[in-house]
Structures are given as C-alpha cells and as structure tokens.
Design a protein around this nucleic acid. Structure first.
Lengths: 346, 346
DNA sequence: TGCCTGACTGACACCGGTGTCAAAACACTA
DNA sequence: TAGTGTTTTGACACCGGTGTCAGTCAGGCA
C-alpha cells in the first residue's frame, strides 16, 4: 500500500459545492450571487453545502470573470500622517461590509513620472478605482488622464471643484469664519494669520473666511500680519517669530493648521510669552496632537474621517456597488473647538 | 453603413502581444516571466511589442494562474496612529519593487470573532500573507490557527518569540537600559517609572531594562515609584499626578511611551512644576509628537519604520519572493535621543 | 548521410469563477 | 391533450494568464 497523506487540505471550489449539491457549477454560482432565478429548494440545498464545506469564493477568479478586483486604492503623498490615517479610517469604514478592500499606494508628488505611475497602478486592473489625497489630488493633469483612461476616481481637496461626483472638499472657508468670529468675539482686534502654501484651494478658502469676518466687523487686514507658512511645525516657528517681532504685538494668532499653531506656541514660549495670557493661539484641523500639548489647542474640527468615508462612498457609487451602507455622509461641517490656548483679549 | 465607434480602447492582453509578435501566447508569457528558455531574438521581438502596446499583465489573471495574489495584508487594532503609519511606511518600503501591494485590514481586538475574521481574510486568497501588529499579534491562538491553516504570517511585538522567522521585536530592554543609564549618569537617583499595560512583552522588557541599570548602580527600586499606565495620554496624566504627589518628589520620570510622558508633562505643568528644571521627563518611541511639544521630549528612538520593513522582508521570504531589496534590515537597535525635557539633577 | 542531443516553441488543459443561450421543467390556457 | 409562456437549469465558451508535455529545428557526432 502506498500511503501518501496529503496534509494540505485544499480549499473547496465552486465545483466541489456543485458536485456535492448535485447541481451545475453555474447554478452554484447563481446561489453565490443571489440570483433570483433559483428555486428556493435548490438555493437551500446549495447554501447548506456551502456552509458545510466552509466555502469561500476565490476573489481572484471572481475578479477575473467580473473584470473587477473589489479593491480601491488610496494614493497619497502627504507629510501629515494623522490626516492620512484619519482618511484611511473613513475609507475603511465606508468599505466595511461592501466586500471592498483598501490598498495603500504612496506616490511621490515631486516625481516627474507620478502621473504615469499612478495611471499604471490604476489601470493595471489591480484596483477598481482610486481616491486621491491632497496634494496629489490637485494635479489636474492627472485627473484628466484618469478621466481619459476611464478610471473611476475621487479627489479629496483638489484646487477647485470640477466634477461634483468625483470631489470631496471640506468647508474650510466656513471653518476659518467660525474661528475668526470667535477670536473677534472675545475681543481680539490685532490678529495675525498664517496661511498655508500657495496653489491650494484650502489655503485660499481659509484666508477668505478670515478676511470675510474681519471685514464684517470693519477690522483692518494688515498685510504684515498675514504670513505665508508651509503647514509644517518649523514654518510655524518661523512665522511665529516674525509675527511676535512686530509692534504692537498681535494679541492672537490664527494658524491655518495645527502643526503651525504648535510652531507658534513654541516660538512664543522661547520668547517667554505666556499662552493664553499674553497671546491667544488658534489652529485648524483638530488633529490628534491638538490635545497633547499644554495649553491644549483651540482649533477647528474637520473630520478627515468623514471626508474619507464620503470619498469612498462616492467612489463606490461610481463602481456601481449597491452601497447599503446607511451611514452615508452628506456634508462635512467644520466645528469650532475651544480649548485653553485662547483667552479673552485683555 | 453602420458606424458604431467603440470609444473604450481595450487594454491589450497577452494574446494581442503574441499575435502581433507572431509567437504563441505561451512564449509571450515566457518573456513576461523572464524564462531563460527563450531565444534572444524572440525575446527582443516580444519585448518590443509589449512596449509598443504598453502592455501590462492583469494581476488577477496572473494571480489566479499562479495561485498567488501578490498582496500582503496588515492587520492591526492599535490606538496609536503614528505607530501604525510608521509600520505601514516600512512595509511599503520593503514591498516597493517586488510587485507586492499592501492591503490595510483593521481588526477589532475585543471582538470574540476576531480569530475567525482574520483567518477568513487571510485564507480567502485575497492576500498571500499577513503581518500582525500588536496587540493582535499577541493572540497566540490566532498564530496557532494561521500556522494550522498554513497562512504565511509575521508577528510584530508578540508576547514572546515563538518562531524566529515569523517574529519581529524591538529591543525594548536595551532601550530602557540606555535611558536609565542616561538618567542616572546625569545625577538622578529618585526616578519614577511608568509601565505599560500588562501581558505585554514590551512592557516587561522595558521594566527589566530599567531595573537592570538601577541595580547596576545599586540604586533602590522603590515599589511606589513604579506606576502602571495604559500607554495613553490620559493614563500619563494620572500616573504623573500620583508620582508627583509623593514625598520626596522624584527628580525624573521615565514613561514607557511618549504619550504617557506627555501626560506627565501636562500633569507637571498643572502643578506648576517646571520642566526640566524641577523635573526631568523621558519617553519611549520617539513618535512624531515628541518634537512638537515644548520642551521637546527626551526619548528612545525605535524605528517602527524599520520594524515594518523587517516584518515585510521576513514575510516576503516566506512567500518565496526573490527579494532583491538590498536595503534589508538586520537588527533594530534603539537609540537614545536627548532633547530638552531632561536636565542634570541639581 | 543519419541519428542524437539540447535549445526553443506551441497546443492544450487548467486556475475558479461568470455570461450567454438554449433546453428542460413546470404551470396554465384552450 | 396539445400549445404556450414562464421559471429554472446546465453546456459551453470565456476572463487572461500559467503548467505540462510533446514537437520542431539546428548543430554535433559517428
């Protein structure tokens, strides 16, 4: 006798199911896909066998036949790790239960081959569609290429809204308005503002929101109180130093993101300026670091999680997924979060 | 005449390549896979056609035929976002150029179906192997199941090293030794230590490292100066308050991670204890937040990026990928990073 | 010249599912 | 009972690649 035990138990295929249930492969497939044209008796029989064999269809084979991969890609190159992971969380939330998985695909914003590279990734049939994060989402040429190659995509925070169904933006203008309104309401008149990098819708919007409220209260917008930053901690320090060297000192500084706000804080503490007694500091984003410093940061809460979720939902719609996810996000509204880095102007 | 223009240009298949090159499908496939048994003339011809058609093989079809998906999964449930994204970066770095992609798969550590769920994910042939992050990596039963189901996997920071090729751990003990040695060397004798949560190899190792150095210098390890934390900012505040209520005050506090260290900082600043003048604070991990607070945090740099990279490399080896990535990580050594939250004991 | 060898090549089945379309089974009418 | 329409089913090709194995062809040797 020749005993060759096969340790490795093979995964059951749809053929196994069909044979054991005494139906054809195709009928088994029908049951798998909830086709209505299967008699209840057959459906039950097949379902029972599937359960018994612990059958799970092979996604590769399905994908090949369906010409779908049931995978979405997240393309990013953003130094802000917290932002990415929040977006990621939102996307995963939206994907949950839809059978879609998420592939992370970092890209190099400064590479001249970026467009090629991303298109390659997207058309290799590896993913059914992609979500582009800022700043990559701002490359209009890339969007055009994707449009041309008929790759489903959604852009988060592009320069401008092009196609509604393929865009998710946050209401940054409103956020900036909320913050400015608040700062003014507690008595600040001399407010420094740190912008983000240029060529960025978000940057522009925040600035506009700021200006709008200043004008509303007939407050002057002094050119030298508007500093251009780079959204980084370091640029926050630099901008802070510039602003704090001015006479008269601004009583409040509103930075376009939390990292820069923390930079200002650092600059202030090195100049022995106490916060919030002598200077109020406000950020934007309410990232995880906002509560980890002391004093903790007054900021605008922008749910990146919701943005990711919304983007994924929009993408799934394009993919024709019967998205039964009820927790759909309709609009993302900024919220003012007052903490201890701001105080009434004395 | 009946003109029905087909706008959608189909992606070229291997058949197209073969036809245009005047060879068989199989030969084209051979060229694709760098099979040695193809004559140079043929190879050139086919390669030229591929380039001309801008042909890219369909990963689904390849996967189906190869019984491989060329995707690895990262399974995690860790509140520490910075850690995850560093690991992720490392994994992606290792995958780069190997043709492998990364799927993110969050799991619920507290779910009773976790094991089933993860096994399902792994065996659905969706991924070729998975990398488990702490705390999920610490579930030995899960590892046993994966072993049984013959799913390639690597665990990062499990409770103990089981199978060398499937484990990546950081040298936490050495890290704690470095930090303790440093604190002692600048004159601290009365050092508070905040442990991480129990049932964690890492927690235990750090504690051992701390004790080893204290004993080396014949310093007493006072039980009430050892506090158990939860690795969160909040637990850092609580632990800090406990330690700072003691008489005599410790002159230095060494927290097992940066979040807790920041918590201590916060506790100290609420008690008007100045840092580092009256109290030195040290963390562990050198996460991105360490440099964003003031004073910035003295900590131990543990490259999570390297850990991710190492884990991915080990996984790729299991998958038999001829990993030509030369930037292989051999060992991950902790580094002491001295910043401004610590100072000579007065 | 004839045979043997080794380097290349291609026909065909297969991976595990799905689409198409015709056939079978059933129900209902005339 | 035959005829018609509707539901349910299965045979077969196909998705886009790869493995197997036999066949072709040129060069070396007797």
């Amino acid at each position: 006798m020749n005993i060759v035990p096969s340790k490795k138990k093979k995964k059951p295929t749809i053929n196994d199911v069909a044979n054991l249930a005494g139906v054809s492969k195709k009928t088994a497939s029908r049951v798998l896909n909830n086709s209505p044209s299967v008699s209840d008796a057959t459906r039950e029989k097949v379902t029972a066998v599937m359960k018994k064999l612990n059958y799970v269809p092979d996604p590769q084979a399905r994908g090949l036949a369906f010409k779908r991969s049931f995978i979405v890609g997240l393309v990013y190159d953003n130094p802000n790790v917290l932002y990415i992971s929040d977006i990621q969380k939102g996307v995963l939330k939206a994907c949950k239960g839809t059978g879609y998985e998420l592939i992370m695909h970092p890209g190099d914003f400064n590479s001249e081959h970026l467009i090629e590279e991303v298109c390659d990734f997207a058309t290799r049939a590896r993913v059914d569609g992609i979500i582009l994060l800022s700043p990559i989402s701002q490359i209009d040429e890339l969007a055009k290429r994707l449009e041309n190659d008929q790759v489903p995509y959604v852009r988060i925070s592009p320069k401008k809204i092009d196609i509604e169904e393929k865009t998710v933006i946050s209401n940054d203008k409103l956020g900036a308005e909320l913050m400015t309104e608040y700062l003014v309401s507690i008595g600040h008149r001399n407010i420094g503002f740190i912008k983000g990098p240029e060529c960025n819708l978000s940057t522009e919007q925040k600035y506009q929101g700021f200006c709008k409220i200043m004008q509303k209260y007939n407050l002057p917008i002094q050119a030298d109180l508007i500093i251009k930053g780079e959204n980084t901690f370091e640029s926050g320090i630099q901008s802070g130093n510039k602003l704090l060297a001015m006479k008269p000192n601004p009583t409040a500084i509103f930075a376009s993101n939390d990292f820069m706000a923390l930079g200002v804080m650092r600059a202030a503490s090195m100049l022995n300026i106490s916060i919030p007694e002598q200077l109020s500091i406000a950020g934007f984003d309410d990232s995880a670091i906002a509560t980890v410093v002391w004093p903790d940061l007054t900021t605008i809460h922008q749910s990146a999680i919701q943005m990711g979720q919304m983007a994924a939902n929009k993408l799934l719609v394009q993919l024709g997924s019967n998205n039964t996810n009820s927790n759909e996000v309709i609009e993302i509204l900024p919220e003012l979060v007052v903490r201890n880095s701001t105080k009434k102007a004395s």
